[in-house]
């Protein structure tokens, strides 16, 4: 973690954040917009697979997913900014933050889950479902995992600033 922290400190983003008042709030806004894009597209496909919004063909809804990927990219960039440019305590403060660590683990699980969806026959099975039809059980499990992990990402993301509450709840 310290090696990574030193590396991030070398980006000098802390100086950039400190010298420009607008950078942090602007990144936060983009982070929330990116979050909405991801939930509104990937989450929407997940919900349809689970049976919400029948009449909407899943394969067509998937055409919105590039917007969710764009949202994820926005959040990867702004999130990097938050960690590398943290004006209070520097990168190490965030890297050692348990809420952030759990959040990143959940992002990783969501990513693996997405790969499982596209690299197995599950994705193709889902695309042939009728507009008002039911998806297979395997697809529903993947969709449920996706929703739980992304909303978990939001939960632990909001907790980063209140990490003490988490540690207190866990008795640490």
């Amino acid at each position: 973690m310290e090696v990574l922290s030193d590396l991030l400190t070398k980006t000098n983003l802390v100086v950039f954040v400190n010298d420009n008042d607008w950078v942090w709030p602007a990144c936060e806004m983009l982070h929330f917009v990116g979050m909405s894009l991801l939930i509104g597209t990937v989450g929407l496909v997940d919900l349809r697979i689970l049976g919400v919004g029948k009449g909407l063909p899943i394969a067509r809804l998937e055409k919105l997913i590039p917007w969710g990927v764009a949202g994820f990219a926005m959040n990867a960039v702004t999130g990097f900014m938050f960690v590398a440019g943290n004006p209070v305590g520097g990168p190490i403060e965030y890297l050692m933050n348990m809420s952030l660590q759990i959040k990143m683990l959940l992002v990783l699980i969501a990513g693996i889950n997405l790969l499982a969806f596209y690299l197995t026959p599950i994705a193709r099975g889902v695309e042939s479902v009728e507009p008002s039809g039911d998806a297979a059980r395997g697809a529903k499990i993947v969709a449920a995992v996706s929703l739980v992990t992304w909303f978990g990402v939001i939960f632990f993301g909001r907790l980063i600033m209140y990490n003490d509450t988490l540690l207190y709840a866990l008795g640490l």
């Binding site: 919004g53 029948k54 009449g55 909407l56 063909p57 067509r60 809804l61 055409k63 919105l64 507009p131």
Partner: peptide
């Protein structure tokens, strides 16, 4: 995403 039917 023009393939998505609007009504539903």
């Amino acid at each position: 995403a023009p393939g998505i039917p609007v009504a539903p």
